[in-house]
Design a protein around this nucleic acid. Sequence first.
DNA 1: ACCTGAACACCGTTCAAGT
DNA 2: ACCTGAACACCGTTCAAGT
Lengths: 224, 224
Amino acid sequence: MTRNTRRTQRGEASLSRERIIEASIALLDEGGATALTFRALSERLATGAGAIYWHVASKDDLLNAACDDVVARGLADIARAAAPQDAIRAIALAMFDAIDAHPWVGTELGRASWKLPMVRVMEGIGFHTSRLGVNDAALWQATSALLNYILGVAGQNAANRQLAQALKLERAGFLDEVATMWSGLDAADYPFTRAIGAQLRAHDDRADYLAGLDLILRGIASEA
Amino acid sequence: MTRNTRRTQRGEASLSRERIIEASIALLDEGGATALTFRALSERLATGAGAIYWHVASKDDLLNAACDDVVARGLADIARAAAPQDAIRAIALAMFDAIDAHPWVGTELGRASWKLPMVRVMEGIGFHTSRLGVNDAALWQATSALLNYILGVAGQNAANRQLAQALKLERAGFLDEVATMWSGLDAADYPFTRAIGAQLRAHDDRADYLAGLDLILRGIASEA
DNA sequence: ACCTGAACACCGTTCAAGT
DNA sequence: ACCTGAACACCGTTCAAGT
């Protein structure tokens, strides 16, 4: 009788790629990017490092698969039939919310934008952008502008969240730290930064994100 | 006679924060992000790890300082007096070129956007955006849209360059790999991605970057 | 004040050996 | 076919000891 069979009888699933990815997501959600190690994963799955490598090629492979899992679920029910601008906003918001729930996804997306998770996003954005009346020459440029913006915000949110976590600060405490740092800058060299610092605490990430997206959509519309 | 004095007499500079940063930049430029280790740095500077820690707080501190060095130089001679849109384009291009020359900078910028390197960029972009006739309420949103776009492209270029390097591929070879991967996707699920793959080899990163920037600038102008 | 370098507590990955 | 777990070749960081 193999160990697997015994496990199944005790109600535990046998080791599989899916279980490994699932456990990885849990580890990443609980402790951030640094929490995913083969040792922590081995312990959680009650197995050895070598067993994990049987199902997964590398840490990179694992991270990418975990990321794709989250992204695919986030994009799952966005209707293709919606008005193009609304569909683009919906995809962008789905990504925002996915990264809000799983900050490490924002970091991972930026590291491999040609791979499946980001290609899913590109397909959606590109598909709807093409329905916007953009001519062929400008289609790639418009799509990649939108994608780069989405990726930029994703990376920022991820970095901010993970730093705040590392410093054990809430959002307000983190923004206070940044505002304090900015207010200490030289007044002659950093007039804008010092002036804007006061707005930092009051700003709404999600609203700003949508406002920026609409700036690009307006730019595309005025070109088309 | 101290070791430092001897070194100075032999024409070698004594260990200092500046020399450490300089050597770090060289290491990063030559071998990418993974090439900067305290062991490699110790060897290059003919010293021990502990000596480096006397001048530098952590690897994070070191990476940030190296990044700031490159960014400060890149932004050094951009005139404040230029027309706002031109100044914004000039700053954005300076960042593009800095990351082109030092891909690791693109990764580092995204990890600490509230710190000095990114604050330099924010100050420039924000200053000129405020001269664009944007009202106070929209100023932060317009500035952060521009910054997030710039950061998104920076991260992408950095990731692509570093992956190509790791795979020992030139730009053309890398794009071929991506195009091939995309052409293998399901035709029903990925119509846009498959169609756009053909344009991938011919595209011009710098031109696309500027086109995207102009989309945002046009959106801002049509709002103001 | 500044530097040395061994030691510590980790990593990802491999691989002979088991079942 | 799948799993074990020790071993390998690394990391960043610390710290007693030197000058």
